[in-house]
């Protein structure tokens, strides 16, 4: 999960957009004591994870810029705080950007989905985030987890009903 700057295909501008976008989708929260997805460590993880998927992700990043330019006249990373909040609000609302002209591009939509998926993959394995969810920051193996047996007496009514298969 480390990034080697030299083999990172993302341009500086793309990294800038990606960081701003990650922070817009998942901002930091003092209430829950968690960083945003634009935290430097998490962004480094996102860039490293996205590297093999660069061609798929790039149109997703470009899409944010296209929409931001059409709606607010600037690229995504340069949105004011108020415009960014408005962008997020509209993204959460069906038809939120119906007031602007933008071309439906399935590649861009798929790219955005891949990008969000990678942001989630990296955000929800960060130690600080896992701890805030009361998870131990560790892989599942080798310790595993406990699952309670549960109440087996729940089976009684099923047993009482008797055989339900069809004779052949």
């Amino acid at each position: 999960m480390t990034t080697i700057a030299s083999d990172n295909p993302f341009s500086a501008a793309e990294q800038h957009t990606l960081t701003a976008f990650a922070g817009a989708v998942i901002p930091a929260s003092a209430e829950y004591g968690v960083p945003g997805a634009d935290d430097a460590q998490i962004v480094a993880d996102i860039l490293a994870t996205a590297r093999p998927h660069y061609e798929a992700v790039r149109p997703g990043l470009g899409f944010q810029d296209t929409v931001a330019a059409a709606a607010y006249g600037v690229p995504f990373a340069e949105l004011s705080e108020a415009d960014r909040a408005d962008f997020v609000e509209r993204s959460n609302t069906e038809g939120g950007f119906d007031h602007i002209e933008w071309e439906f591009d399935p590649g861009a939509i798929a790219g955005q989905r891949t990008l969000i998926s990678i942001i989630l993959q990296c955000y929800y394995r960060d130690d600080r985030v896992m701890q805030s969810l009361e998870m131990e920051p560790r892989p599942p193996f080798p310790q595993g987890f406990e699952v309670e047996q549960g109440d087996w007496s729940l089976l009684e009514p099923v047993k009482q009903r008797g055989k339900i298969y069809r004779p052949a």
Binding site: T49, S117, C122, R125, P139, P140, F141, P142
Partner: peptide, 15 residues
């Protein structure tokens, strides 16, 4: 080497 021994275990289901 299966994913569950690493922190990126959920990611590897996508790769």
């Amino acid at each position: 080497e299966y994913p569950s021994s690493g922190r990126d275990w959920e990611s590897r289901a996508f790769s």
